[in-house]
Every structure is written in structure tokens, then in C-alpha cells.
Design a protein around this nucleic acid. Structure first.
Length: 739
RNA sequence: ACCGAAGUGGUGGAAUUGGUAGACACGCACGUUUCAGGGGCGUGUGUCGCAAGACAUGAGGGUUCGAGUCCCUCCUUCGGUACCA
């Protein structure tokens, strides 16, 4: 069974054939008359740590599929590339002064070396890197196409902005209302305008209006701002409301940023799931993310001390419970809050707002048991029975979801119930014996009581009755709501694609396509500007083009380059287009896509979005990028522990550890043979172990063991290089597949 | 907290519809082999017990003649929760 070849011979043979493959170009593919097959791995982020044996798990599987299909006579596209923009390279640059371009280049070289050793049959002539100007030229180009588009709800597809202006010139926006229902015209305070009005607007007003429709648009959105560090932080860098580095307070701050109007595609992204072969759990995750719910929008008049004439709008999936509304809750950030506070409540509300500012969204959702809130002093009027309902603010209502306001029905909703109990608000029971006071009952089956014209109706049947009534009285309507929000597309970072726009009079205009790529300017200062803008703001000469012209100082997120790279592989060297239509038509969709389930929402949704937009605009013949998705699973590591006697430098062998009070410490598996620790190597590992003493059993130090996820932090990583050196590439491949 | 997935020997995992739990393999132990070795062959290997046997599929309940599989409650781990990739 086992070959009689030595390590050196194995190495020699493998190297010889790898060179031969490259020399003969055996894995190069071209367009042909043969049927095609496209096998793709999710391209890696080239981290400084290199590949560990977990990475190749999926790559080996796809390699086997590619080889199989090739032998079956298919023309197989099996490329590899690098998702090379990203935060870690930038942080590395700040800490070590090494330009991200250089560290990224080094890391990629190491990745390729490691992958080559494993003997993958990639067509390296097709390699793409998202940080390469010849690649991101087309990322920027696609962004400009998105910027130049709007979503025509009547045709249910994206169209060019010129189509919209044509409509405005003939009939105003009557057929195409503002996508954002909260938006009102600055000039009139209205939401509609006529053709005549449109023609009377100046350039800036027109652009302002068009911005409300564009699929890529500028708007004020929240960021995590850390005053002490003078920078915007990723959610990952914020832990319990303070910065991960340094522990400084972090607050939310509004910044003018790019967003993609992915919400316009919510329904199509949902429907598209039916025709693609993803696992049920994957589809479930995407469905939940999109979060479609049907219900009604209800308008309540508001009675407040400042006595503005106003109303508030809530979205509810349970309009049948409208007579059980005992309070209203508005998100603390909601713009109406400041207009309705009564004098008596002002101090309390402001104190509360200060508290909320310090809380991350995740904290707000996570700590549901902790009930907080403040009464505004204002009241909403139930439109059916004129009952006065107190309006509260509370962090459990999020501004971004629905209308940012809810109606509180304590007998039917557990969170509302806890809120009412906590603040001693009266609870109206509309479901009779289904509610006994201990906890809420979210049933649909109860017969309604205390509910005026709905009395005696089962709740399920009451829903259409009450919605019809709302529509009849003009105080509400049926409404489909999606939990998904538009995608924030600006990052205050250096290492990403610059936005190909120029600001004139503080308004962005698309750059000329012929001037792309807008290259990332060279820099040796990667520190944030301190003003909330990214490091690019430090490069004054680059930012300020002329007196009236400025560049955007943000860059795109890494999702941008990753949202279309599978298209570039079809025609990676094309200088005239992101890929030729011939190549796109031939290679088409990815037949099998292999990668981790952690990308279920971000990468996979953005890729689906970009493909749908390009399809709508006529650049593609298909609407879904990936026909079939396979999640490859994970490799666990076999960790080893030593046991330090608490408060000493003595380490006790595993068999004797129960005789002492000990703390387990991970020890690098390099120093352990089976379970036996190489104590000499261990003492040299770290300075603080240099004078370690060992309590041995049978003359040996035996380690503890556990199976954990493979991670550098647990010192249980296995580098594929070592396995290949010891056993050869085929052994690694077979072994991983056997696992 | 919410959404998703998963918990079966030392390990990877079998057990297609509710019908012999642990197939197959890795590892380990012992033996064996003109046996360099990480090779070959054999035996053993869930736990307790000398044995008969009893107990075992994250925990606890339930349905059933019969539950890893169905139902309820709970626990743990992993992934995601919108600026990590």
C-alpha cells in the first residue's frame, strides 16, 4: 500500500509535475464548442497567517469536481483569485508601517505558493485581485451603472436614470413616488410634483430629487464614532459600547454616506431563492434576513403640549389588536421625539437619550430583559375610539425598522407586556380567557373582546376587516414590510476602492468612464483623519481637485470587489468591458460554488443583487450568479493543555492535576508528541515559562487534550505545508476528503 | 436576546419510513510477521461487572408494544445579527 518513495522523492516528483503542468498550460481554458462547467471556491482574503488545513477543505473538494467534470468531457472553468482589500491589511499598516499593497502582495505570494504545493488545477492565467487597478476599474464602473439607475416598480426592474427624467418631464413623479415614504420635498413639503414643477426646478434641486431614486445614493446613516481614537469603528471593533482597542467610549454619529437600495430588490431576492440550489438552512437565513412581513400602516393623530398638528405612523403585523393598544413606543432617534416632549418630561427624556446614545444596536436587541424607557408627555389618539394613548420612547424600538414606532399591545406581545408591567401601565384585555395576567399571549385564535366593531370576531378573521376599515377611513393601508435595510456602502478606510465621483457644490457627479480607474493614491499615512473622514482626507492635494471640485474620501467595502469577481473570471484581461458578452454567455452562471455558511447574508446577497442589476441593465443573460451552493464545513483542531498550579510557575502533569488547584493553558501542539510535552521546547517558548518547574508522572509530562475549532489562538493549527513535506500532497488531499 | 445549524464511543461518522444503536474507518492496546520503519496479518476496543447481566445517542419529561428518530421543557457548542472576511 504505502509507496516506497522517500520524502525527498515525493517532493521531487510533485515538484516536477507541477512545473510540467505550468509549462504545458494543461489547466488553461478557452471558449470552445464543448459544454462548459464552472466550479468556483469563495476566494480567500489573503491574511498574514497563511493557509491552514481548514482552507483547502473546500478547495480540494472543488478541485475534485473540476477534475471529474474535465474527464467527463466538459470545458471546465476553475479559477482562483484574492479578495485583497480589507481592514486587517490597513491595521497592519498602521501598526507596522508597511504599506497594505506590499503586505497584501506578500501574503498573496505565500497563499499561491501554498496552494501550488497542494497541486490544484487552477487556471492561474485567470487570477484576479480585487485591489488591482485593472480589476477595480470595473468595480468602479459597475458602481457608476448602479448610480445611474433607479428601480421602476411598475416594470419591476432597474432602468437608467434618463428613463426617470423622461417620466418627470411628462407627468412629474405621480407614477413613481419616492421610494422612501418619509421623504418630503424641501420646497413644498409635499411628496409629489408635476411636470411643470419639475421643469421649474434648478439643477441642484433636480439632482437632489434624483438622488432619492438612484440605486446607489447618498444619505445620512449611523456610524460608530470614537472621539478618543478620532475614528469610525467597525461593529467588530466595538465591544460593550467601548472600543476594542483602548476601551474608549463609542457613540453613534450620522454621516453622509453611500448606500445601495437593495430593499427595492427584496421581493426578487426572495423569489430567486426558489430557483437556486442552496441548502434549506441557507435559504432560511436569507429569508429571515430579508424578513418579509405583511401587515398595515396605521396613522394616529398626536396630542402634544407643544401642540404641533401632527400624526404618527406605525407599522403592525397585528392590526386586529388595535383596541388593545395601551401605549405607543417610538425609537429614541425618531425625528418626532423632539417635537412632542412636554416641559415636565424634558429632563427625563434627555437623560434617557444620552443613555441610548452609548448603546450599540446589538446591545439594545440583546438585553431584552432589561427594560428601559421614558414617557414623552405626549399622547396618540386611537382613531377608532378616540382613546388617549401615552407615547413613550424606548431602545427596544429601532429607528431603522418599519416606521420606527410601534403600538404597544401588552396582552398580546411579550415585550410590550414586560414594558407595561415595568412601568405600571394599565393593560387592556381584548382576548378574554386567553390572557390571565401572568404573561402575554400572541395567539391568532382568540375571539376578540373590548374591541368595538371587532367584538366576537376571531383574530385571524378580524385582520382583513380592520384593514378594510382603515383604508375606507383613509387612516391606514395594507403594507408589506421588509426587515432588510439598504446596504451601507461607504467605509472610512484607506485600503479599498475609491468612489469614482466628483463633488461640485457638495453634490456628487459620476466621473467620466474614460477616466477610470480612479486609482487609490499612494500614501504612507494610514491613520484616520480625526474628523470622521477616512485616511484619504489627509491627502489634501488628491481630495481637492480644484476650487469647486472635491473627491469622496471614503472607500467601498470589501463586499464591492467580491460582488462580481465570478463574472470577471469569464474574461479576466478584458480592457474594454468587465467581461465580454460572449464570454459571459458561454461561461454563464457558476455551476457549483463552494464556501462557508458564514457568508450566507452579506457576500451572497450582494452578489445576487449586483447580478440582478446588471441583468436588468442588459449586461447579463442570467439573474442568479450561483446555481448550486455547497457549504464545506469546518476542520477542528486537536488542542493540548498544560496545567499551571495557581499562583506558581509549577506545571503539573495531567494525571496528577486533581491534587492541585490548577489553571489549564493552551500549549502549542508543536511542543507535544502525542500527549507528551517536550518540556525543554516549552520553557523556551515564552520568557515567562523559562523558569517553569514540572511535576511529572512516570518521568513524563502528560498534556490534557480537547477537540476545539482550529484557531491560532488555541495553538492547534496545522499548516498544510508541514503535512505535504511529511506525507506529500496527495496524502493531504485524500486525508481531508476522508475526514 | 433573536434567526439558523448541530449535539451518538478517544476521533470522523453509520443507523432511508419509529423496529438488533455504534456499520465503515481512524486511533489505541495486545499479539504476530527474516519485523528498518509510519508496512502486513490477527484479536480486542461504549460504560459498569469475574459473570449472568445492567446501563448507554447533551439533560429531564411525554407519546408508543417499541424512540437516536415524534412531541414538550431545558442545557451546551458553532455560525449570523448589517463596517471582520
Amino acid at each position: 500500500m504505502m509507496s516506497d518513495y522517500s520524502k525527498e522523492e515525493i517532493k521531487h516528483i510533485e515538484e516536477k509535475w507541477r512545473k510540467e503542468w505550468v509549462k504545458r498550460g494543461v489547466y488553461r481554458v478557452e471558449l470552445s464548442k464543448k459544454p462548459k462547467y464552472y466550479v468556483l471556491d469563495m476566494f480567500p482574503y489573503p491574511s498574514g497567517a497563511g493557509l491552514h488545513v481548514g482552507h483547502p477543505l473546500g478547495y480540494i473538494a472543488s478541485d475534485i469536481v473540476a477534475r471529474f467534470k474535465r474527464l467527463k468531457g466538459y470545458n471546465v472553468l476553475h479559477p482562483m483569485g484574492f479578495d485583497a482589500f480589507g481592514l486587517p491589511a490597513e491595521q497592519y499598516a498602521i501598526e507596522h508601517g508597511i504599506h497594505p499593497a506590499r503586505s497584501t502582495e506578500q501574503n498573496i505570494r505565500n497563499f499561491i505558493r501554498q496552494m501550488d504545493k497542494i497541486g490544484f488545477c487552477y487556471d492561474w492565467t485567470r487570477e484576479v485581485r480585487t485591489c488591482d487597478p485593472s480589476y477595480y476599474k470595473w468595480t468602479q464602473w459597475i458602481f457608476l451603472q448602479i448610480l445611474d439607475s433607479w428601480y421602476n416598480r411598475r416594470k419591476d426592474k432597474a432602468e437608467r436614470i434618463t428613463e426617470l427624467t423622461k417620466a418627470f418631464e411628462t407627468e412629474g413623479n405621480i407614477s413613481h413616488p419616492f421610494p422612501n415614504i418619509k421623504y418630503k420635498l424641501a420646497s413644498s413639503g409635499k411628496t409629489v410634483f408635476s411636470a411643470r414643477e419639475w421643469k421649474s426646478y434648478d439643477e441642484k434641486s433636480r439632482q437632489e430629487i434624483l438622488m432619492q431614486y438612484r440605486l446607489a445614493y447618498l444619505a445620512y446613516t449611523d456610524v460608530n464614532w470614537c472621539e478618543a481614537l478620532g475614528t469610525v469603528l467597525a461593529n467588530d471593533e466595538v465591544v460593550n459600547g467601548v472600543s476594542y482597542r483602548g476601551g474608549y467610549p463609542v457613540i453613534k454619529r450620522q454621516m453622509r454616506q453611500w448606500s445601495l437600495r437593495i430593499t427595492e430588490y427584496a421581493e426578487r431576492l426572495l423569489k430567486g431563492l426558489e430557483e437556486i440550489d442552496f441548502s434549506d438552512s441557507m435559504k432560511e437565513i436569507q429569508r429571515n434576513w430579508i424578513g418579509k412581513s405583511t401587515g398595515a400602516k396605521v396613522r394616529f393623530p398626536v396630542k402634544s403640549e407643544p401642540s404641533h398638528i401632527m400624526e404618527m405612523v406605525v407599522f403592525t403585523t397585528r392590526p386586529d389588536t388595535i383596541f388593545g393598544v395601551d401605549f405607543m413606543v417610538v425609537a429614541p432617534e425618531h425625528e418626532m421625539v423632539k417635537e412632542i416632549i412636554s416641559e415636565a418630561q424634558r429632563d427625563e427624556v434627555e437623560k434617557y437619550l444620552k443613555y441610548v446614545e452609548s448603546r450599540s444596536e446589538i446591545d439594545r436587541m440583546a438585553e431584552v430583559k432589561k427594560i428601559t424607557g421614558a414617557f414623552t408627555g405626549a399622547y396618540a389618539i386611537n382613531p377608532f375610539n378616540q382613546r388617549e394613548i401615552p407615547i413613550w420612547i424606548s431602545e427596544y424600538v429601532l429607528a431603522g425598522y418599519g416606521t420606527g414606532a410601534i403600538m404597544g399591545v401588552p396582552c398580546g406581545d411579550e415585550r410590550d407586556h414586560k414594558f407595561a408591567k415595568h412601568f405600571n401601565l394599565p393593560i387592556t384585555n381584548i382576548i378574554g380567557s386567553h390572557y390571565v395576567g401572568g404573561e402575554a399571549n400572541p395567539t391568532y385564535d382568540a375571539i376578540l373582546e373590548n374591541s368595538d366593531f371587532l367584538n366576537g370576531l376571531p383574530m385571524r378573521e378580524a385582520i382583513p376587516v380592520v384593514v378594510d376599515k382603515l383604508e375606507e377611513l383613509g387612516i391606514g393601508q395594507r403594507q408589506v414590510n421588509y426587515k432588510m435595510r439598504d446596504a451601507g456602502w461607504s467605509r472610512q478606510r484607506y485600503w479599498g476602492e475609491p468612489f469614482p465621483v466628483i463633488y461640485r457644490d457638495d453634490f456628487p457627479y459620476a466621473m467620466d468612464e474614460n477616466d477610470l480607474p480612479l486609482e487609490l493614491p499612494d500614501s504612507n499615512d494610514f491613520h484616520p483623519s480625526g474628523t470622521g473622514e477616512g485616511p484619504l482626507a489627509n491627502l489634501k492635494d488628491w481630495v481637492q481637485i480644484s476650487d469647486g471640485e472635491r473627491r469622496d474620501t471614503n472607500t467601498m467595502p470589501t463586499h464591492a470587489g467580491a460582488a462580481w469577481y465570478f463574472l470577471r473570471f469569464a474574461d479576466p484581461h478584458n480592457k474594454k468591458a468587465f467581461a465580454s458578452r460572449d464570454a459571459l454567455d458561454y461561461w454563464g452562471q457558476v455551476d457549483v460554488y463552494i464556501g462557508g455558511s458564514e457568508h450566507a447574508v452579506a457576500h451572497l446577497l450582494y452578489s445576487r443583487l449586483w447580478v440582478k442589476i446588471l441583468y436588468d441593465l442588459g449586461y447579463l443573460g442570467f439573474e442568479e450568479p450561483f446555481k448550486k451552493l455547497i457549504n464545506q464545513g469546518k476542520i477542528t483542531g486537536d488542542s493540548r493543555f498544560v496545567y499551571r498550579v495557581r499562583g506558581t510557575k509549577k506545571f503539573v502533569s495531567a494525571g496528577l492535576k486533581d491534587k492541585y488547584k490548577t489553571d489549564p493553558l493552551h500549549v502549542d501542539i508543536k511542543f507535544v508528541n502525542g500527549l507528551e510535552l517536550n518540556t525543554e521546547a516549552f520553557t523556551q517558548w515564552r520568557p515567562d515559562f523559562a523558569d517553569a518547574e514540572f511535576i511529572l508522572e512516570d518521568g513524563k509530562y502528560i498534556c490534557g487534550a480537547a477537540i476545539e475549532k482550529m484557531s491560532k489562538a488555541y495553538y492547534n493549527v496545522v499548516n498544510p505545508d508541514d503535512i505535504i513535506d511529511a506525507y506529500g500532497a496527495d496524502t493531504l488531499r485524500m486525508y481531508e476528503m476522508f475526514l
